[in-house]
Design a protein around this nucleic acid. Sequence first.
DNA 1: CCAAGGCCTGAATG
DNA 2: ACATTCAGGCCTT
Length: 287
Amino acid sequence: MKKLLSKMQIKESIDVENSINSGQVFLWKKNNEFWYGVNGQDVLQIDENAKIKSLKNHKTDFFRSSDDFDGIIKSISKDKVVKDAVKKYPGLRIIKQDPFQCLISFIVSSNSNIQKIKTNLENISQKFGERIEFKNQEFFLFPESETLSNASINEIKKCGVGYRANFIKEASKIFSSKEIAIEDLKNCTYEDAKKKICKIPGIGNKVADCILLFSLDKLESFPLDRWMIRILEKYYSERFQIETKTITDKQYEILHQKIVEYFGPYAGYAQQFLFKMERENYQKRWL
DNA sequence: CCAAGGCCTGAATG
DNA sequence: ACATTCAGGCCTT
């Protein structure tokens, strides 16, 4: 029994370090052997075995451990490129994060870089979020949508987000008005959910796909940023031909359809493995 | 529907 | 030093 369990854990083990360091989340830091991070109105402490302690005891399947991980790996392993990436980061997971924080995070991310995104989000939390102590450390929860919807553009700008300040305020208004309900988004299809959130200012194709993949359970979502385009050109130039320099909405949609046709319904996982691998190849920094 | 240009900011590059 | 480019894009023309 014990042997079986340990074997299972090796097979299914979650790589906390690499999952957090893969461009999905930003308000995380390591202190001694634990990772600490803000997830909406909650703070989490995670050890190397992915055991989670939550400040508010919210139930969250942060690492999507109820996903059939082995099945997903089999499903996306269509070629050597993905297989190599999976072999390199076998415990890399898609993280299920707080939807509002995720939405604002990726609005902030556009035309930016990880270090700056992190700083911007820390500023937003510190300025507008509730200060709280957890495990003898200070944290600032991510602000509620109401708070940000009532904040002035200038105050938001002080967080260093520039022209995105207006997007943040407008997005927060829409979110807090419940005009778009999270449960609906989770329940409807990828296409419908995407259509809905793309109406929010500051959310285009790429940002929408990040939000859908990292907080709304849409695993066929496949965010196409500069890195993924580069990866497709490098490893999949015949299969996914990219005709133009700038990817238009229409081309993005066609490309995404081809990608899902090829990688299947868990294409988002394939994206995460490829992204992680290529960024590491170029020794890009994470948090 | 497509192409081009502007945009806050700050670290990296020349 | 100082200017220019570039970075997980989006929006307008």
